[in-house]
Amino acid sequence: MINVIVTYTVKPEFVSENKSNIQKFLNDFKTLDQAKFEYKVFVKEDGVTFVHFSNYENEEVQNEVLNIPSFKEF
């Protein structure tokens, strides 16, 4: 199993657009086999720090997920 945690901070004026971009790829992920990976996004209390938590069954699944066009655009 592959586990990844990514944390980053955006400018306050970009929060809404960032959330919208995240929702796009999360919606596209729903077309994939959800039993093979997990992807969650959290916003810290400061409202501008995002944490992406993901785990994948294997590298093949990870590559499939991360190559979804909306994710690559993100």
Score class of each variant (00 low, 15 high):
M1S: 13
I2W: 09
I2S: 07
V4I: 14
I5A: 11
V6E: 12
V6Y: 08
T7V: 13
T7C: 06
Y8M: 10
T9W: 06
T9L: 03
T9G: 02
T9N: 07
V10T: 09
V10R: 08
V10M: 07
V10Y: 09
K11A: 12
K11I: 03
K11Y: 04
K11F: 04
P12Y: 01
P12I: 02
P12M: 01
E13H: 13
F14I: 02
F14S: 12
V15R: 08
V15L: 00
V15W: 04
V15K: 07
S16Y: 05
S16D: 11
E17K: 12
E17A: 11
E17L: 10
N18G: 01
N18S: 08
K19C: 09
K19G: 01
K19I: 07
K19T: 02
K19Y: 01
K19A: 04
S20P: 00
S20R: 12
S20F: 06
N21D: 03
N21H: 00
I22V: 15
I22Q: 02
I22W: 04
I22S: 01
Q23E: 14
Q23M: 11
Q23F: 05
F25K: 06
F25C: 06
N27R: 05
N27Q: 10
D28R: 08
F29L: 15
K30Y: 00
K30P: 00
K30A: 13
T31C: 04
T31K: 15
L32M: 13
L32P: 05
L32F: 13
D33M: 06
Q34P: 02
Q34M: 12
K36N: 13
K36Q: 15
K36R: 15
E38M: 11
E38V: 09
E38S: 15
E38F: 07
Y39D: 01
Y39P: 00
K40W: 01
V41W: 08
F42L: 14
F42E: 13
V43D: 05
V43T: 15
K44E: 15
K44G: 05
E45Y: 13
D46K: 10
D46R: 10
D46Y: 12
G47I: 07
G47E: 11
G47F: 06
V48K: 14
V48W: 02
T49F: 03
F50D: 09
F50L: 05
F50V: 08
V51H: 04
V51D: 05
V51P: 03
H52G: 01
H52K: 02
F53M: 07
F53R: 07
F53E: 10
F53N: 10
N55D: 10
N55I: 01
Y56I: 02
Y56A: 00
Y56H: 12
Y56L: 02
Y56Q: 00
Y56G: 00
Y56V: 00
E57L: 14
E57W: 03
E57I: 04
E57Q: 15
N58E: 05
N58A: 08
E59C: 00
E59G: 03
E60Y: 04
Q62K: 15
Q62G: 03
N63T: 10
E64M: 13
V65S: 06
L66T: 14
L66Y: 07
L66K: 14
L66D: 08
N67D: 09
I68G: 04
P69M: 10
P69G: 09
P69C: 09
S70M: 03
S70T: 15
F71E: 01
K72T: 13
F74E: 08
F74P: 06
